[in-house]
């Protein structure tokens, strides 16, 4: 799995967008191929209602343009950890939404806090996007120059965050 790059994205950034606007998602790019992961509610007309199965959907954001993106180069252990996290059965809720889930996965895998907390502690894509842009301003990344973070080498899958 050498060379896996994790991306975190939002298509809105900042307060000029509505509290409920937009969407956040993750990507994995390996050997030139990008796979898209997002958390979507069963109630969304564009998703298949799969009942109690996981709300992590693959491929739905392939046509989207991100307003904010940040990239990380994963070690083999981090890549294994990410893949394991994608097999979890995760339910979308207003308090466990696309932006909170994306932020939590990045924290679990590479231990960088990409904050998504908006008013009343509700996570939103616009706040995630705003903080991605702030991080990028201080420490830019790109798909061609991803950041390597080894704070959480994930030598054990039991080291994921809560």
């Amino acid at each position: 799995m050498a060379g896996m790059i994790l991306g975190i994205h939002s298509n809105v950034a900042g307060d000029e967008h509505g509290f409920t606007a937009g969407h956040a998602w993750l990507t994995i790019t390996e050997k030139g191929k990008t796979t898209f992961y997002g958390l979507w509610p069963d109630a969304h007309p564009n998703t298949v209602d799969n009942g109690d199965d996981s709300d992590i959907r693959v491929g739905m954001e392939a046509g989207d343009k991100a307003a904010a993106s940040r990239y990380y180069k994963l070690s083999d252990a981090q890549a294994d950890h990410f893949n394991a996290l994608m097999t979890a059965n995760v339910a979308w809720r207003y308090t466990n939404n696309c932006s909170s889930w994306a932020s939590e996965i990045v924290w679990a895998v590479v231990r960088e806090d990409v904050d998504a907390d908006d008013y009343l502690g509700i996570e939103t894509p616009r706040e995630l996007g705003r903080n991605i842009l702030l991080l990028e301003q201080k420490d830019p990344t790109s798909i061609h120059a991803p950041k390597a973070l080894r704070k959480n080498p994930a030598s054990s899958l039991g080291s994921s965050s809560s």
Binding site: G22, H23, G38, W40
Partner: peptide, 12 residues
């Protein structure tokens, strides 16, 4: 056309 993805909205 395509619309931007939104978790809480869709375009009918």
């Amino acid at each position: 056309y395509r619309v931007m993805s939104e978790t809480l909205y869709y375009c009918p």
